[in-house]
Design a protein around this nucleic acid. Structure first.
Lengths: 231, 231
DNA sequence: ACCTACATATCGAAT
DNA sequence: ATTCGATGTGTAGGT
């Protein structure tokens, strides 16, 4: 990994065009040829970048660029696509290289799978008398997150999201259409469950006769004591 | 901006939990307190991070951590949420600070807004005799990208995407359903326009009587001479 | 401040 | 290889 602090301008040409005027930035060149251009603010997304695999080629700037004060020009070319990053370096303020080795990678916990496990264990959250048929109930168009039976014996399909968006309602609608063609299951009603449900999604769900359920992950996790001693 | 190369382990606790085992990584601390943890591979997304605004607090490691070889411990606390990043530093291999100043920001060209402007200006791309009713035609469920009138006086709703996916067809379908309830507009037919249309999306669109149109952005920009002198 | 839609999204699993 | 779904999505633009 090479770290360069430089006064530079950057142009990206590929799926779109993007231009960064002259300013001081961090240029991060990774071992796989990928390049990140970061400013001293914003979030983790670089101002400009090139995804790996890529190659960095150092060229002599054109006459007009030299006159303007460009010391070096880097051309970062994607190996896969016709995407290119052109970095004009006016002044290098720092330059260091470091050997990092291979990273063992990230271990995660608390994603949708955990939410699903918790809801399956606490199926009464859906309503009194509910019983679990199964998680990841497989259909031709994909797995239904949770299939359950309500107090009256009716089948309920649950689509589970962290963020309840309109896409999730569409997904559940497709499942319900399919499940309701099965005479052994029909009629199947739908429950759209999420930590947060967007107003638009709620409107669409209600319009289609789908019940909305907002989940409190922290409360559900509080009930399940195994999750408190993960690391 | 501070750049540190260190042998470290990292734990994130917040919306989820994530753990990075001991390895050499880049720690990038920005002026707004945000921190990025990068390895020498992957794309622009850090292995772990803290979004701004945040504060970095250096603490003395606990007894057990000291025995294990932890020299320093950084606690990065989000100012907004109860999100925390804990970085255990076993060895610092590099440490430098740099003053970058404020970045002038990125200038983009070729995003959906540009496509929409060009298609509105060159509405004949849809067919001979087409006239523009308006861009961003507002409805209760969101804005229709372009509403036009064809040679026979019929109304046409255009959904525009850079990449034509199945979601875009669903979106247009919802708009068409709504628009066709309006007797002043009905019947409204749909056109799904994108630089690239996925085969699945095309099949679904055709199945629903929606016309597909592949756009050549470069050609459309070529017609519009103002766009040739953007940079 | 909240909500909505777009993104050079990235990333991983399943097909 | 490609598609699909999740993301600690981020980001910009509107109301």
């Amino acid at each position: 990994m090479r770290l360069v602090i430089a006064r530079c301008s950057v142009d990206y040409v590929g799926r779109l065009k993007a231009h960064l005027p002259l300013a001081i930035r961090l240029l991060l060149i990774k071992a796989d040829g990928s390049v990140l251009v970061h400013s001293d603010g914003g979030s983790y997304k670089p101002l400009n970048w090139m995804s790996p695999p890529a190659t960095v080629r150092r060229t002599t700037p054109a006459e007009t660029d030299l006159e303007e004060g460009v010391q070096e020009q880097w051309i970062v070319q994607s190996a896969k696509a016709d995407d290119r990053l052109i970095i004009n370096i006016y002044e290098q303020l720092h330059d260091s290289s470091h050997d990092l080795g291979v990273d063992p990678g990230l271990i995660k916990d608390g994603v949708e799978a955990d939410l699903q496990r918790l809801l399956a264990e606490q199926i009464h959250t859906l309503g009194d008398g509910f019983t679990l048929i199964r998680r990841e109930y497989f259909t031709a168009i994909g797995p239904v997150d949770i299939l359950a039976r309500d107090a009256t014996g009716g089948t309920v399909a649950v689509e589970l999201k962290r963020r309840g968006d309109i896409d999730g309602v569409e997904q559940l609608t497709r499942y319900l259409e399919l499940l309701n063609r099965d005479p052994l299951l029909a009629p199947v009603r739908g429950v759209f469950a999420a930590q947060q449900i967007k107003p638009q999604a709620r409107v669409l769900a209600v319009d289609r006769g789908i019940e909305c359920l907002t989940l409190d992950y922290d409360a559900m996790r509080g009930v399940d004591d195994t999750s408190t001693r993960l690391f």
